[in-house]
Amino acid sequence: MSFLLPCPNCGPRDVDEFAYAGETTERPQGTPSPRELASYIHFRRNAAGVQREWWYHRFGCELWFLAERDTRTNEVLKTELPSTDAAGSPTPHEPATPDTPAV
């Protein structure tokens, strides 16, 4: 992977500067059934084509933004800062490495 990704804040930058956080998901409303919960947490469309996804400019401005990228060619069609209604939700992270906690 060595394509350029246009950060909505900083402009086109090397993809190495960013953290990829996967396709957008739809957080259920109300109380989801176990099946709805499981598909929200675990299942992804994994599209071969244009996909809406989360990126974080980790070694840059530290902003989260959304991109539309063709997963087959890595062509980035669009990037934008999230508007609250169109954003979907974060996907769970792995837990932190062994360490000293607070309290």
């Binding site: 953290a19 956080a21 957080r27 989360w54 974080y56 980790r58 530290e62 902003l63 989260w64 933004f65 800062l81 999230p82 508007s83 609250t84 954003a87 979907g88 939700s89 974060p90 992270h93 932190a96």
Partner: peptide, 14 residues
């Protein structure tokens, strides 16, 4: 990780 997590959710919730 935590600051990214906070910012991410706030990007969603605004």
């Amino acid at each position: 990780t935590v600051i990214e997590w906070f910012d991410w959710w706030n990007a969603v919730w605004g």
